[in-house]
């Protein structure tokens, strides 16, 4: 097991280096000059030359890549061409907001999708199933920006029930930044008003972001459960006189869990890699907006840093899912 884990962690490293190489090649292939993009229309020739020298962009490409890898060994992701800050610092600044939103959205997806999928499977082709399938189709196919603007308009502007964009009411003093997760920071500062407000601010974006995942999860859970519920051992469990709850949760769900778990890993990875539209509409200072701005201004050190982080997160989540397989299914053993 330990040998397997070490091998997989080495693979993560390998994937990381591969990602930097691919991103680096893409940066070289694109015919646009990132320096011109960074300095704008008024930039003078001397400024452009100085900028190239400062960021080492005047050196041969392989030398640039070598320098990048050497720095990477010291966990230095270079400096962003756009913000001028170390990329690692930028990521520390923007990732917690995405983490907070993603975890909340993941919670929404699981809390809505899983029970809805189970219910639909248990009541196949009856009203609950039809309703679940209808809403799954609706939420899964509604464009995020439309849903976000619609919900903001109704619940914030017209009804005044939920707060507007951002992470905290602008009239509140934000808690000191410790983790970057406002809810957690508010709790650490024992500022209940800020905690409550931050939680309120999370509701709409988490629902918008989580709803499509919930729809997908509901459909997947339904399909997996339907397959398991028709198996002999479920019939046997019922014939033994086990309570329905026990049959569903211990016998059916546990066996349907493998495909669901795979999906959950992918969903969380997708959420953590930043949700550009949700973050833009809800003015959420996360990763998605950072990477879009970096990409549109051809800020390649930033794009490489983000891609590397997302790649590593995905690889680690895959590893976690694989390890959980072994926990759920005793037939799976890693040597």
């Amino acid at each position: 097991m330990v040998a397997y884990l070490v091998r997989r962690l080495f693979m993560v490293l390998f994937v990381g280096v591969g990602i930097t190489f691919v991103t680096f090649v893409i940066a070289q292939v694109i015919p646009i000059d990132p320096v011109v993009a960074a300095l704008g229309e008024n930039a003078r020739e001397e400024q452009i030359r100085e900028f190239r020298e400062r960021y080492g962009l005047d050196r041969p490409i392989l030398v640039q890549y070598g320098i990048y890898l050497r720095r990477l060994l010291h966990l230095d992701l270079g400096r962003s061409l756009r913000t001028g800050c170390p990329v690692a610092e930028d990521l520390r600044e923007f990732f917690p907001a995405t983490l907070e939103l993603s975890l909340a959205a993941f919670f929404v997806a699981v809390a809505l999708g899983l029970p809805a999928g189970i219910l639909a499977a248990l009541r196949q082709n009856r009203l609950p199933d039809v309703l679940v399938r209808f809403f799954a189709l609706l939420l899964g196919s509604t464009p995020v920006f439309f849903l976000a603007i619609l919900l903001l308009d109704v619940f914030h502007r017209q009804l005044g029930l939920l707060p507007g964009p951002g992470r905290l009411d602008p009239y509140l003093i934000p808690p000191p930044r410790v983790t970057g997760l406002v809810t957690l920071d508010a709790l650490l500062a024992r500022d209940l008003a800020a905690f409550w407000d931050a939680l309120h601010h999370l509701l709409l974006p988490a629902f918008v972001l989580g709803s499509a995942s919930a729809a997908l999860l509901a459909r997947m859970t339904r399909a997996a459960m339907l397959e398991v519920l028709s198996q002999d051992y479920v019939r046997t469990a019922r014939a033994k006189g086990l309570a329905e709850g026990q049959v569903v949760l211990r016998h059916a769900l546990k066996n349907a869990a493998l495909p669901i778990l795979t999906l959950l890993g992918g969903l969380l990875g997708g959420l953590l890699s930043g949700a550009v539209l949700t973050e833009t509409i809800f003015s959420w200072p996360g990763f998605g907006r950072y990477v879009t701005q970096s990409a549109t201004s051809l800020d390649f050190p930033a794009v490489m840093g983000v891609t590397l982080l997302v790649g590593v997160v995905y690889s680690l989540l895959n590893l976690l899912v694989d390890l959980l397989y072994a926990l759920l299914d005793p037939r799976i053993r890693y040597a």
Binding site: I149, L152, D153, H156, R157, G160, P163, G164, P165, G166, P170, T280, I281, F282, S283, P285, R289
Partner: peptide
């Protein structure tokens, strides 16, 4: 307050948030 999206900017102004 950072608000990028013009439709949201208008909503925030009309609701009195900004």
């Amino acid at each position: 307050r950072y608000i990028q999206e013009p439709a949201v900017l208008r909503t925030a102004l009309e609701s009195g948030e900004i």
